[in-house]
Design a protein around this nucleic acid. Structure first.
Lengths: 344, 344
DNA sequence: CTGAAAGCGCTAACAC
DNA sequence: GTGTTAGCGCTTTCAG
């Protein structure tokens, strides 16, 4: 390993001069600067970031903690976070907690022991369960992703799930659908609730009532893949019903579930969207790859990732002055082929 | 931040004693050990890993460098690598180079400056272009993922692409298909070549000749999504052909492309697999979510990830003694709904 | 068995 | 302007 010492020796100066050149603390003679710089180049010296971090008490490291990576939204979010960090001269540590609190805690610990400058965190559990527990462990600037809560100490960023639900309902109502079904995840999760309440409220505004048997809570327990829940849901909405009772539109609370719905409809040779319109939320990569391509409400993942990193940077900069804020990002209606006018 | 100093003060011992307790270098009296341990607990002291790393010249950090995260195989591989690292007490830095050599180089640089103990690297470019360039920059234990090459300095791990091609061909031939089409990526990439050569060679073994117009090189340039290439390919295999000329089976060189093929077939109301069988490679999450679910040749991503980390650990341990090895992992035939017996 | 001291590679006061 | 010195939090000789 080449160190400042080596450079200093070659250039015939002291290490602090080398340091000064590197940090552009202008108080260095142009001539010595040149000499040092050529020595740096000759030795191909690169400052060691561990030592820098120890001394400067800043690691230039951001820790990103997510549930998993097998899910498009997380993978994509991670990709954008990485990009933003890189751009700002930070590297990204990635940890996955698989929705296990123990793992989550040890990741937080580990990352803090690595002096991360900031943490972007998507909690394993609902905000209720956590507040007392994990919160005290965290002593670095943190942005909560997706599961936010107000503690005016940590920033948060999330998607406007309520509005997403409303947009979906409005769009389907605008296509003249009256008999509408939907899936929901476990209502314990805020974001799940929000999506559903938005959907229901907007239907009410539109003068549409959603029948109880047309709302299906999926067994969203991480043991059954989402799309299988979708297949089950489609079955529930179709089996043993008279034609009049069959919904003309199905809104799934996420795209994975929607893909399962579509799969089951294909299996039954039901035409999409001619007979039944299908819609999701998230705008994952899959939406364009299936037939028919899926109409959905998109999350602005890139913006959310960039904003998260910006918030972290701001928090790092301001320190105590920082005032925690929860940023809620706008959903976007993305119309593809899986939805159409109601024909009955 | 709580440091050893604080613990030492509280326990009434020296920092070196604290360090000894932490590192279990047994030469410490049971009684003082107890005192120190209770002080540690009381203060909730956690050793700082940056300082440890600087001193020990081991960061307990593995750097994973991949092209991107929007692709299922990479996301999944990353997930498994993270899990393996975690298990072994390592954290994972993640970097994405988006197939840009410049970015790749700066990631390697950056990670090395962070004293990563090892690197798992999926190159941005084909091995040819790189050897002179990047190789010299890398001075830590490295495992090449997916794009391997023999330089007996770095380990490598990849999927047996040739065999994957063979397995696909054998399976389709076994279903009695004779008129078979396939897609290929840019033949400059070894792994693309391997898949195709395996496919072609096995067809020859089976006494089947693949017509030139039934091999379509996709414009696999990262500007067009894979699945769009698949749609284009399907069109090319179908348009302006007499019924006799239309293939009864299409093998795509990856699952994303296969999904595009399926999409286009749906659009034309062609029954899968009754009229045309479709098959892919990789076994990405999508394969189960589309209709019909996709028969494919699976990569053992979990094994590959675990093996990569093991190789890194071995290399770290053995140092100069380490003998670089290229490990080639077995493909697995996964039969789903998109393929069936030839009916013509 | 334990404490004191040196040093990992770097930066920042403080002299000169 | 530049060199000297101290110190970030830790481990590891070396004495005792």
């Amino acid at each position: 390993m080449i160190t400042q010492k080596d450079v200093a020796r070659l250039a015939g100066v002291s290490v602090s001069t080398v340091s000064r050149v590197l940090n552009e603390s202008s108080l260095v003679d142009e001539k010595t600067k040149q000499i040092v710089e050529s020595a740096i180049k000759k030795l191909n010296y690169k400052p060691n970031l561990v030592a820098y971090g120890l001394r400067a008490k800043s690691s230039k490291l951001v820790g990103l903690i997510l549930p998993e990576m097998n899910h498009y939204t997380y993978a994509s979010f991670a990709q954008f976070v990485e990009g933003s960090c890189m751009e700002k001269g930070y590297s990204m540590l990635l940890g996955l907690h698989h929705n296990e609190c123990e793992l989550e805690k040890s990741l937080v610990d580990e990352f803090q022991r690595r002096n991360v400058d900031g943490l972007i965190l998507c909690l394993a559990i609902d905000e209720q369960n956590l507040s007392n527990n994990l919160m005290e462990y965290i002593s670095v600037p943190t942005v909560m992703y997706e599961r936010t809560f107000n503690n005016n100490r940590m920033g948060g960023i999330r998607f406007d799930n309520y509005k997403a639900g409303k947009m979906a309902a409005k769009y389907l109502a605008g296509l003249n659908h009256k008999n509408i079904a939907c899936t929901v995840g476990p209502m314990g999760m805020h974001y799940v609730q929000d999506r559903f309440f938005g959907f229901r409220d907007e239907l009410t505004v539109q003068g549409i009532e959603i029948k109880k048997q047309n709302v299906l809570e999926c067994d969203f327990n991480y043991r059954v893949p989402n799309f299988v829940s979708g297949e089950d849901a489609a079955r529930a909405f179709l089996d043993g019903r008279s034609d009049r009772d069959i919904p003309t539109a199905i809104w799934a609370h996420n795209d994975n579930v929607a893909s399962g719905v579509i799969k089951e409809l294909h299996r039954r040779k039901i035409k999409i969207p001619e007979e039944i319109s299908v819609m999701g939320v998230d705008n994952i990569g899959l939406t364009d790859m299936i037939y028919p391509s899926l109409t959905t409400i998109g999350q602005p993942l890139k913006n959310m990732a960039e904003k998260s990193v910006e918030m972290i940077m701001e928090e790092i900069e301001l320190g105590e002055e920082y005032k925690a804020d929860i940023v809620i990002m706008e959903p976007e209606l993305i119309i593809r082929e899986s939805t159409g006018k109601c024909r009955s």
